[in-house]
Nucleic acid binder design. Structure first.
Lengths: 253, 253
DNA sequence: GAGTGGTCTAGACCACCTT
DNA sequence: AGGTGGTCTAGACCACTCA
């Protein structure tokens, strides 16, 4: 891991005379990143280094760093330091390409870890989605996905065992899309998605290595096959700085 | 504006023994909201009230409140206090219904203020979008939109004057969609959108009445008519707690 | 004018990562 | 073992809102 060059010569304040100190500091760091002087995955100086170099209190420095984090310019690794964020990947829900595919197409290295897989009884909400009775068995899968080794999303998938028996015996670290297509012959013809900002908290935050409360994006997706059956239901919690959504579509009435 | 009932009887800690104090406080407040004891637009007790009631330092209390803000559960009005967030509206980009329409359909009261409108020379990026030469004149409109009186988004719209001459002489506080359709006969047949998390900073934050750095959502949209001409280009900056995106679509190859 | 959040300081101790 | 960020305290002054 490279380390940042002396931060002493951050771009000058120029005429930032206005506004709070933490925004002025934010600007200086942001400029360094935008000018390309600090590259993705570079580690910033430590908070205490900033402190002695600038004479600003640590709390104020953390305020500036948190700002940059909400903007997606930098991220933290717990108790290790602050790093410049790599570019976000583009997610196009109108394409039925799985994570492994579109991340690869964008020149990045995707990875998947299956954290949990088991059979669970359907909650009433899930029973509703799959049009079955509550308590009926469902496959439940929990995965963590990475880009260039950095965890970017946690997902919880639910699949109807009736449509994909023995699914859990497969290795789920590869593309689920692929497994469902190749082994069970499913083609998805309709996708219903709900996208909303959220905060990553507790276990989800922990597994993504972010501080609880970091902003994130929650994507809920229901996939249907050509006969209108629910093939897959999943909830994805993304790091907010890792995703960008792009859709190009014809307009309905 | 109603005020919160005594917060002293926030739900008990029970067994939250684990974790930082600010998360425990977050939980108590979150529970009050989820249980419906604190309703949308209710004001929370002041930070100093929390301080004396709980004996926790103000910084720590602000940490808890900031958490709830990132989660979208509460929001602040500058130097006035913290309030429980109203529900988000659902935005469906596959429908060509303007803001005024879909907000109304969801039982809320939409509002629009035009903050600026003028002719500007095309930047090279805009010239690219509109397929014209840089420096050519473009209409530029800046609007703030509200739901139930609360500002939720700032938008900057660009329109080609060749397609809608005299556009700026119309009142732009109504639906631009409507004006383009009724007065100029445009029907949008294709929509290209880019959605990404961002932070609301500087003027944008100020005009939405949020603290600089609050998480937000940036929606960039390019609308085309049936002849493939760019009818409208706009960038919308949303409060993150005000929007939810829903799409339901057939899948391409 | 009283009260609010916004900003800032200067400490402290801890759990954990890194070497 | 030394350094890092994570958490917390106890103050302070300010700009602003609201009654």
């Amino acid at each position: 891991m490279r380390s940042a060059p002396d931060m002493l010569d951050l771009p000058r304040l120029a005429d930032d005379a206005e506004g709070p100190q933490y925004l002025a500091l934010r600007d200086r760091i942001a400029r360094s990143i935008e000018l390309g002087r600090l590259k993705p995955e570079t580690r910033l100086p430590s908070e205490r280094q900033f402190q002695t170099e600038t004479g600003i209190a640590r709390g104020t420095i953390r305020e500036a760093l948190s700002q940059l984090e909400s903007e997606g310019l930098i991220y933290r690794r717990d108790r290790s330091g602050w790093y410049v964020s790599p570019p976000a990947v583009t997610y196009d829900p109108t394409r039925w390409a799985g994570f492994m595919t579109y991340v690869g197409e964008q020149g990045r290295v995707p990875g998947t870890e299956t954290l949990d897989k088991r059979v669970v009884p359907a909650s009433s909400a899930m029973a509703d989605v799959f049009r079955m009775v509550p308590g009926a068995p469902l496959f439940y899968i929990e995965r963590r996905r990475t880009i260039d080794g950095r965890p970017v999303l946690m997902e919880r998938i639910v699949v109807d065992p009736a449509l994909a028996p023995d699914l859990l015996t497969h290795s789920l670290d590869a593309s689920l899309t692929e497994i469902l297509k190749v082994h069970y012959g499913f083609s998805v013809s309709r996708n219903r998605m709900d996208i909303r900002p959220c905060a990553l908290i507790r276990e989800t935050a922990e597994r993504l290595g972010v501080k609880s409360g970091t902003p994130g994006i929650k994507v809920t997706r229901t996939s249907f096959d050509d006969r209108g059956r629910v093939v897959e239901y999943d909830r994805e919690y993304w790091r907010h700085d890792a995703i960008r959504i792009h859709v190009d579509l014809s307009v309905r009435a």
